[in-house]
Design a protein around this nucleic acid. Sequence first.
DNA 1: TTGAAAGCGATACCAC
DNA 2: GTGGTATCGCTTTCAA
Lengths: 347, 347
Amino acid sequence: MDKPEIPDDKAKRRPITARQLARMLGVSQSAVSRAFTPGASIAPDLRDRIKQFAEEVDYHPNAIASMLSKSRTNIVGIVVSDMQNPFYPALIEKLSRSLQRVGLQSLLFNITKGSNLEEQLSALRRYNVDAVIIISATILSGQTLRWATEGRAALLINRVVEDADLSCVICDNVAGSRAIADHFYETGRRRVAYVSGLSHTTTNRERQNAFVTRVAELGMTLCARVDAGEYSYEAGRRAAMEIVERGGADAIFFANDILAAGGLDALREEAGLSVPDDIAVAGFDDIALASWPHYALTTFRQPVDEIIAVAVGMIEDGSCYPGRPITIKRLPGELIVRSSSHRISDS
Amino acid sequence: MDKPEIPDDKAKRRPITARQLARMLGVSQSAVSRAFTPGASIAPDLRDRIKQFAEEVDYHPNAIASMLSKSRTNIVGIVVSDMQNPFYPALIEKLSRSLQRVGLQSLLFNITKGSNLEEQLSALRRYNVDAVIIISATILSGQTLRWATEGRAALLINRVVEDADLSCVICDNVAGSRAIADHFYETGRRRVAYVSGLSHTTTNRERQNAFVTRVAELGMTLCARVDAGEYSYEAGRRAAMEIVERGGADAIFFANDILAAGGLDALREEAGLSVPDDIAVAGFDDIALASWPHYALTTFRQPVDEIIAVAVGMIEDGSCYPGRPITIKRLPGELIVRSSSHRISDS
DNA sequence: TTGAAAGCGATACCAC
DNA sequence: GTGGTATCGCTTTCAA
């Protein structure tokens, strides 16, 4: 008796089934099934008659039963870990909408670092989701990922995991970071710094390596490289102050926008510096906040819509099913210059 | 052939079933079922033997089949509409975690204002979710809600819909708004203004009415009441400027934090006012941004954890199943005073 | 095109 | 405590 007692008055009245509908109409159950299957071979008038009657008696095909016989759920599991970074909620919202548009529902798996990952992900397998989309900066080992997605379509967004044999679609971090470095150079900055979020993530490694490399190529000085430890506003503030205390810089590239927002506020309010006159700030992602006049953050925009379109496309056309060759789609983003990084000299 | 071709090499290998497992072990299928049913009457050693063997051959009970026979999905549908307001992603994240903790998965329904609501919600019924949680400021008519949730547990969070016969759990908007008014009064403000988000939502109506009423009781002047039209940063900026142009005020209560953030920035940067010296600003929700030093927003904190605990509790104990008397839980929040509303005079 | 019947993979009731 | 078996509601051959 650990399950809730459902009062019998209304709740127990089970919904009508295809069998009942068929009997009422004097047709076969198969006919009902066909009536609700687009493209099934059934006479148009029969289909109409069934559908109309179904409407009247409020019949709806039971998706669960359909899942069982078709072994297809039309559900994709979305594995998420850090909803704190506003970039992800926005992404998830658009993604789930796009999936809905092609008849797929989103089952959310919010994983937490601490506890047993396999336990958290076991539902992914038991629910027989058709596909899994992993949107998560958290470290999920290739091993865990392989286990969790075994036998079904799977896709990583914004991450690459070398040893998991998973396809992925990501923003071109390298081009983005180089663009930021170039922009700093062109606007006269020479002493730059880099702030990482979670230093071990592939996202960060790509951005950092590309930026540092380009900075060296351009002959600029990398005065500091600070690991903020997490992707948060507060961490951004701390990182910025650390850079200031270590002697400063004339431009800082933060690994993402939320860090940059914190950094920018700290530079202005705590360090008393002028952004962009004393120091330029740039982020990555182009979240909503970046365009707020107060921040007006120069950043590299992730092509969210394209990322989603490609991801949904890959799930639809089956190109990320197991057995298919894995593909890595790198989508171009766009440098967005705002006033957090004006020219140092217009001369 | 509209469905993706799944390559046959690995994908088609169906997972092992209870029946197969039973045969391999020379026991009945019922035994296997019992082994995986906590509290079922089965000999401990038999259970161990089965579970151990299951582990070896990688058997996992198929949740879909179980759903069909139990008519219980362990899935709750979460209906959301505005993920733009950072309050909601944060809420959803915590909610889905709490649900997972009691063995419930979250199926996300992201509804869009424009298109056909019933079509968007029809999946709710077909998927036979055990319960529906509606977190949505968007206007869903009582009629639509009744239809969408018919026959299953349902719960509104942060909203009341009078004609839908749905239980709900909400923050005490009235106490919160009165607290803000009191706080303005105590800190010496006398000419106040109110900015609404979506003026027709119950959330807004409660906050607005309570605030306006309390303002009158205290003998303060309500200089302006502006409808921002949406809950966004930009709308907050516009509303603040409108108040300034209409003659100003010495305190503004924004219907939520994201509006307040925009308003605060506009007051400082566009209107050149000092917050809180010239004008005080308060919001509602206590989202992450409110505690950022740059905003340091005075606000009324919604008791998110309690809201979620109560909501999950109501779903678990069945108290929001149809046929049960509907309940409206109003949970107390907490006034958080920060520096966007310092005293005007300490004398 | 249509209907009959055999699954899909569990659960639950029934004897033993 | 254990094994047989009907059942959940739909999909899908297979004949007609």
